[in-house]
C-alpha cells in the first residue's frame, strides 16, 4: 500500500510539497507503529504551526517573494545629487542647532533670574519668610479640576446630585 502510494505520487509530477508531505507523513506514522488504512492525499495529519491562519498566509506569501523585493526601495542618487542632498541636510541640522542654542540660552537665563528672585525673597525681605513660603508653596493634591466642574452633556447624569459631597474629596 505504502509503496504504491509513493510510486503513484512520483509519477504524477506534483509540486514538491505535495510530493513530499504525504510520503513523510506515512513514514512517520509507520515509525510510530500505526499505518493508516485510509490515506488522503494532501491532507495534513499534524498542524505544524501555532501561527494564526492570517499570519501563516503572509509568511507563505513572503517566502515565495525574492529578498530584493522585500527591501524598501533605495533612493538612487548620483554623486552630485548625493552631495547636494548632504548640503541641504547639513544646513537644516545647523539651523536647528542654532535655534536650540538660542532657546537653551534663554531658558537658562530665565531659570537663573527665577532663582535669584527666590533668593531675594528668602534673605532680602525681612518678613519671616512669608513671601518666600507663598512663592515656593507646593501643592499637595494632584487634582487640579474641582469636583464642582462637569463636562456639559446633553442629558443629565445618572447620579443627579451627590448628596454625600464634601469639600475634602
Amino acid at each position: 500500500m505504502l509503496t504504491n502510494t509513493i510510486k503513484l505520487q512520483s509519477g504524477l509530477g506534483l509540486s514538491l510539497s505535495q510530493r513530499i508531505m504525504p510520503a513523510s507523513a506515512s513514514i512517520s506514522s509507520m515509525m510510530a507503529g500505526t499505518i493508516s488504512s485510509q490515506f488522503t492525499r494532501g491532507k495534513r495529519t499534524k498542524s505544524k504551526s501555532t501561527m494564526s491562519q492570517g499570519t501563516q498566509r503572509v509568511v507563505g506569501q513572503l517566502s515565495v517573494m525574492s529578498a530584493a523585493r522585500k527591501q524598501p526601495l533605495r533612493l538612487k542618487l548620483t554623486n552630485e545629487d548625493l552631495v547636494r542632498h548632504q548640503v541641504v541636510h547639513n544646513a537644516w541640522a545647523m539651523l536647528q542647532k542654532q535655534k536650540r542654542q538660542v532657546r537653551e540660552e534663554k531658558l537658562t537665563k530665565q531659570f537663573e533670574a527665577m532663582q535669584s528672585a527666590m533668593e531675594d525673597l528668602k534673605h532680602g525681605v525681612e518678613d519671616g519668610g512669608v513671601l518666600f513660603g507663598f512663592g515656593s508653596k507646593f501643592e499637595k493634591t494632584k487634582k487640579r479640576v474641582s469636583l464642582e466642574l462637569r463636562v456639559p452633556t446633553e442629558y443629565p447624569p445618572n447620579q443627579v446630585w451627590n448628596h454625600k459631597y464634601s469639600k475634602s474629596d
Binding site: 533612493l75 548620483t78 547636494r84 542632498h85 548640503v87 541641504v88 547639513n90 544646513a91 545647523m94
Partner: peptide, 22 residues
Amino acid sequence: KYTSPTGLDEVFPLAYNFLQET
C-alpha cells in the same frame, strides 16, 4: 532616465547660501 529628487534644486541654493554665511 535619471531625475533629481523633487525640490532639491529649489532648496539647495538656500542651504548653500546659509552654510556659506556660517
